[in-house]
Design a protein around this nucleic acid. Structure first.
Lengths: 237, 237
DNA sequence: TTGTTGTATATTGTTGTCAATAGGAATTGA
DNA sequence: TCAATTCCTATTGACAACAATATACAACAA
């Protein structure tokens, strides 16, 4: 693993501290599956890999602990958080509620231009070319949901939902491989869109809740996939 | 301000790092109003006050930034987060949703012993002696809501709700001084309890949402009080 | 074989110091 | 009097060395 040494070189226009850059880099690796739940994060190794001292690494890791992505076991090392079953279910339950709330508020508050943006996002999701490519669909799906977040006109809610979604992302990967996932998702999107378009708060909320909860596959299927992933039921927090 | 030097002496049974103790101490000061929103947190001053070096303070502050209680303005200093109006409203909106969700789940999942605990908490809230003392009532009120959290059987939800409540606490203080607050709150509690007892999910959810949102006082009253507190509409995040 | 004790090592916590950066003030010129 | 430039200082970020602590492992004894 000799690559990605000094990934911290990019500078857009903002000046960011090494700690922040480290935090983002680790976060991304965790979310995108480069670092799997349970993987050990060795301070010295990371310090060497990124060419910085241990302090920024300590601080970055501590911040990730606060946001729940990693856990430190005293004198045992720091590891990518591995959330147990029960908590995973609990988190999805909350995620569904937040998404549902976004939908309800969006149905009530969406503005004409936002509605058109949402419609455009829906159309892109329904494009056969997009549907056939998992990466493309993943991106457009995110866009669709982002539109709903924006339309909820509650930026705090949006950021909370986004944060929780990120935290769940390492485990959501498992769902996407289910058969017919995409086509099911698309038809759910259409129902969600129509509910929002017509201002049906309750229906938008319900549709979104289900969209998150069952994610087009039976929940037991999902559970068994998670089980197969090798979790027992410990840690996190 | 010579007091509280080395508040970090208490040891229950756990060993906690200075950073963690600092974080808790600052958190508590912020939540309990010792440190008002907008107050400056001087690293050196804190280092002197608590008798530690600057590093634990740095780290504690960084963690508080992640959880949203403080903000750092580049090269200007770090300050207790002062959330603006709009975001305050947004946060209350989310808080209401989470509380409502707790109530809904509790109505569906509460166990006999939990129901009795909730009933007992309700009775304590209704005790005239308790109602007459703001501090007592505050405590018992917290207990009542804690029972609902527990009965939701979703510990993740409970911790998220608790965290958000803490973050709002500096501003909730303003509500408690409203006339008839306690007696209104108590009767709301009874309605909430009855809804949960009878398993009426929807009603429990609605009651709790309103309980949080209007908090017995008209929202505009609350808003004007907040305004009087001296916020304009900046920072946070 | 099992239990205990001691040592070694890995990991985390703390400190003092240095460097860089941005804000503000003061001085100088018009 | 006003504006611009320069210098000073407050503040944050980073580092390396030091210290403390708990765990793991091995050796030894019962």
């Amino acid at each position: 693993m000799t690559k990605s040494v000094l990934k911290l070189s990019r500078e857009t226009t903002m000046k960011r501290s090494n700690t922040q850059k480290l935090k983002d880099a680790l976060e991304e690796d965790i979310i995108n599956g480069q670092l799997l739940p349970g993987a050990k994060l060795d301070h010295d190794a990371l310090a060497a890999k990124y060419g910085v001292s241990r302090t920024p690494i300590r601080e970055a890791i501590q911040q990730l602990v606060v946001s729940g992505l990693v856990t430190v076991k005293a004198k045992k090392g720091t590891f990518v958080a591995k959330v147990g079953f029960d908590q995973l279910i609990e988190m999805f339950e909350v995620m569904a509620e937040l998404e549902g709330m976004c939908g309800r508020l969006a149905a009530r508050r969406i503005q004409p231009d936002e509605l058109e943006a949402l419609r455009a996002a829906l159309y892109r999701c329904e494009d056969p070319d997009v549907m056939s490519d998992p990466d493309d669909y993943y991106y457009e799906n995110e866009e669709f949901h982002s539109c709903i977040y924006a339309a909820s006109h509650n930026s705090f809610l949006a950021s909370e939902a986004r944060q929780l979604k990120q935290r769940l992302k390492p485990y959501r990967r498992l769902q996407l491989q289910t058969r017919n996932r995409v086509s099911t998702s698309v038809s759910e999107h259409r129902r969600i869109f129509e509910a929002i378009e017509k201002g049906k708060e309750f229906e938008a909320e319900q549709q979104l809740k289900e969209h998150v909860l069952i994610q087009g596959t039976r929940f037991s299927d999902f559970m068994s996939q998670v089980k197969a992933f090798g979790h027992t039921s410990q840690d996190a927090s």
